[in-house]
C-alpha cells in the first residue's frame, strides 16, 4: 500500500515538474523581454519610441521611432481580417450546416492542409506569384507591398478561422434549429438567425485567433512586404513589428542601442499578443459561463 502511495506521489511530482516547465518558459520569456526591452525605451523615451515616425537604426544619427511598424502591423492585420473573416465565416457556415458529408470532408481536409503549410512556403509563393501579379494589375513599379502582405496573411489565417468557427457552429444544439424550422423559418434564416448567434462567442474567438496569427507572422510577411520602414500605405513597401525584429537582429551588435531597441519592439509585440490572448480568454470564458 505504502509502495503504491509512493509511486503515485512520484508520478504526481513528475507531472508537476513537466507542467512547471511550461509556466517557467512563459515567465522566463516575459521577464527576459521586460528586462532587455526596457533600457532602450528608457534611453530613447517612451513617446519618441512609440510615436517616432522614423526608423534608421544604423544611420550615423540613429532614429528609433516604431510608429511605422505599429501602424503597419495594425493595418496589415486589420486588412487580413477584413478579407479573411468573411471568407472563413461563410465557409464555416457552409461546411457546418449546408454541405453534404462528402463535400465537407474534402474541403475540410483541404483546410487542414492549408493550416499545415509552413509560412516560408506562403512567402515564397507570394514572392514569385503574388508580387509580380500585383505589379502588373495595379501598374505599380514594384509589387512587394502592404497589399501583398495582407493577401498572404488573409490566406494564412483562413484555416484558423474556419476550423474554430466550425467547432462552434457544430456545437449549437440541434433543438434550437429544429424549433426555428418548426416555426416556419427557412433553412438559411435558421442558420443566420439562430445557429450563428448561438455560436457567436466561438466565432469571435476564431477571429481573435486569426488576429493573433496575423500579427505574429514574420517569415511570410518578410518575403512579400519589402521591409522598408515606410509609413504604411497600400502599395508601399512596409515593415511589420515582427519583421523589424527578425531582419535586423542577426546583424546588430550585442549591447548596442540598436539591439536593445529590437528587444523593445519585441516587448511591444509581446504586449499586443498578450492583449489579444486576454480578449480570446474573455470570449471563451463568456462562452463557458453560458
Amino acid at each position: 500500500m505504502n509502495k503504491k502511495r509512493l509511486f503515485e506521489n512520484i508520478i504526481h511530482g513528475i507531472f508537476l515538474v513537466l507542467g512547471l516547465i511550461t509556466v517557467g518558459c512563459v515567465l522566463l520569456i516575459t521577464v527576459y523581454l521586460i528586462v532587455s526591452g526596457l533600457p532602450a525605451i528608457k534611453e530613447i523615451g517612451l513617446i519618441d519610441f512609440l510615436f517616432g515616425k522614423e526608423w534608421a537604426s544604423t544611420a550615423e544619427e540613429p532614429k528609433y521611432g516604431i510608429l511605422p511598424f505599429i501602424l503597419t502591423s495594425v493595418y496589415g492585420t486589420a486588412g487580413a481580417i477584413l478579407i479573411g473573416v468573411p471568407i472563413g465565416f461563410f465557409t464555416a457556415v457552409y461546411l457546418s450546416k449546408i454541405a453534404n458529408k462528402r463535400v465537407r470532408s474534402i474541403i475540410e481536409s483541404a483546410v487542414n492542409l492549408l493550416a499545415g503549410i509552413p509560412s516560408v512556403v506562403y512567402g515564397l509563393v507570394g514572392m514569385l506569384v503574388l508580387v509580380p501579379v500585383i505589379r502588373e494589375i495595379f501598374n505599380v513599379p514594384d509589387g512587394a507591398s502592404l497589399l501583398a502582405a495582407i493577401i498572404v496573411l488573409a490566406v494564412m489565417i483562413l484555416p484558423n478561422i474556419i476550423k474554430v468557427s466550425i467547432t462552434a457552429l457544430d456545437a449549437v444544439p440541434k433543438e434550437y434549429e429544429d424549433a426555428s424550422l418548426a416555426l416556419g423559418a427557412t433553412n438559411i434564416e435558421t442558420y443566420f438567425k439562430v445557429s450563428v448567434p448561438a455560436a457567436k462567442s466561438g466565432i469571435a474567438a476564431a477571429v481573435v485567433l486569426g488576429v493573433g496569427r496575423a500579427i505574429g507572422e514574420a517569415m511570410a510577411v518578410m518575403m512579400v512586404a519589402g521591409n522598408v520602414a515606410n509609413m504604411p500605405s497600400l502599395f508601399q513597401s512596409v515593415r511589420f513589428l515582427t519583421t523589424a525584429v527578425a531582419s535586423e537582429m542577426a546583424y546588430s551588435s550585442p549591447g548596442s542601442l540598436q539591439r536593445n531597441a529590437l528587444f523593445s519592439i519585441a516587448l511591444v509585440l509581446f504586449l499586443f499578443i498578450m492583449m489579444i490572448n486576454a480578449t480570446l480568454n474573455f470570449f471563451l470564458k463568456r462562452d463557458k459561463e453560458k
Binding site: L128, P132, P141, A144, N227
Partner: peptide, 21 residues
C-alpha cells in the same frame, strides 16, 4: 530602397522577376 531583403538569394529572385529592378 524600395525593398530591403534579408538574403542574397531573395535579391536575385526579386531582380529576376521585376524588369525595372
Amino acid at each position: 530602397y524600395r525593398q530591403e531583403l534579408t538574403s542574397t538569394g531573395d535579391v536575385i529572385t526579386t531582380v529576376a522577376s521585376n524588369p525595372n529592378a
